[in-house]
């Protein structure tokens, strides 16, 4: 037969396997920290749940986790409390923000903890299809915009006049040029799934810039850190709340302020991003389930600082989601006790 099976080199595989086992035995005395992948706790109930006797059983809560650390912090604390205090089974799902909404009608997703705008989705899923409900603010106020390192603004203060005349940016296009932007300046966007008007703004303001995507929040942070370390100019799409802003000094380059409808034509926008009052959205199915988790999420509300603290612990301090959540929960009992049903 001319058919060879694909097999792995057995010796190599065995060696690798036993090396791992050996290292496990060696480290057996002092348990190594787990490699936790958030949202992958696939259908496990927390063993140490302390369910309040008076409450209905919590059941399973599917929390969408959108790809930025701030959101991960929301989910870490909410998930931790739901498991530990209400005895819920929490399933975290790593999903993009717009895709998360698709999960409401099918039951894939029960909760979005930090929604940034998305009026079109709200119109469809909340107003028209009635498969989701707006649970109001989570307490965080969001800002999206274009940022540069402070040292750059110090050296070139007139860049701040973009608030009235965005074309001032064209003066600096050459300085923001990279290998990816050709002869234009580069505006570094983040995750492809993030809310962005940048191409529309470039068109609208007549800017000589090209949008380049880093691919993720972490990649953007890394690029910013590298630029700041090397004192090189960088122009980034950025947002608050954001734990990373405490590590580097970024300045928001404001454009003419947002007015209702100014961003209606996505390919031609002549204003800055609107302010975002971040809100919680849950599926109707979940809202009517009678689960105490619903009441809890309805009451969930914290500040940008709270979120940043947890996010910083998860990232730069290398803590697991649960550890970071526990730390915050232990330090802020008064905040979370108000959320309990």
């Amino acid at each position: 037969m001319g058919l060879n099976r694909r097999t792995l080199s057995p010796t190599a595989a065995m060696l690798a396997t036993f090396a791992i086992i050996l290292s496990a035995c060696g480290g057996g005395a002092t348990p190594a920290p787990s490699i936790s992948t958030p949202g992958a706790s696939g259908g496990e109930a927390s063993a140490s749940a302390v369910a309040a006797a008076s409450l209905a059983p919590c059941g399973t809560v599917n929390i969408a986790v959108n790809p930025w650390v701030g959101y991960e912090a929301d989910a870490a604390v909410v998930g931790y409390l739901l498991q530990q205090k209400l005895g819920c089974t929490v399933v975290k799902k790593n999903i993009d923000e717009q895709t998360s909404w698709q999960g409401f009608p099918t039951g894939e997703v029960d909760v979005i903890l930090e929604n940034w705008g998305h009026e079109d989705l709200a119109a469809k899923y909340i107003t028209a299809d009635k498969v989701a409900q707006d649970l109001g603010s989570n307490g965080n106020e969001g800002v999206i915009g274009w940022y540069v390192p402070k040292f750059f603004v110090d050296a070139n203060p007139d860049i701040l006049t973009a608030k009235t005349d965005p074309t001032i940016l064209n003066k600096y296009a050459a300085q923001f040029k990279t290998s990816e932007s050709g002869d234009k300046g580069q505006i570094l966007d983040g995750d492809p799934s993030f809310v962005t008007n940048d191409q529309g703004m470039i068109n609208g303001f007549g800017l000589n810039y090209k949008v380049v995507y880093s691919g993720s929040e972490a990649a953007s942070n890394k690029a910013i850190q590298a630029a700041v370390d090397a004192q090189k100019p960088i122009l980034v799409y950025y947002y608050t709340p954001n734990w990373f802003s405490s590590k580097v000094d970024l300045v928001h380059i404001e454009f003419p302020a947002w007015t209702p409808g100014c961003d209606k034509v996505a390919t031609n926008i002549k204003c800055d991003y609107p302010p975002y009052h971040l809100n919680k959205v849950v599926s109707t199915k979940f809202a009517t389930s009678g689960s105490p988790a619903f009441t809890f999420i309805q009451k969930f509300k914290w500040t940008n600082d709270d979120q940043n603290a947890v996010a910083a612990d998860i990232t730069s301090n290398g803590m697991s989601d649960d550890d970071a959540a526990k730390k915050w929960v232990d330090a802020n009992p008064s905040v979370w006790q108000a959320w309990m049903p």
């Binding site: 490699i35 949202g39 696939g42």
Partner: peptide, 20 residues
């Protein structure tokens, strides 16, 4: 959004966690 090891890799890429 298929769960499992693929998700772990995607999340690791998002977070630039090579080891993970």
């Amino acid at each position: 959004n298929a769960p499992g090891l693929g998700e772990s890799i995607i999340v690791a890429i998002e977070k630039l966690k090579f080891g993970a």
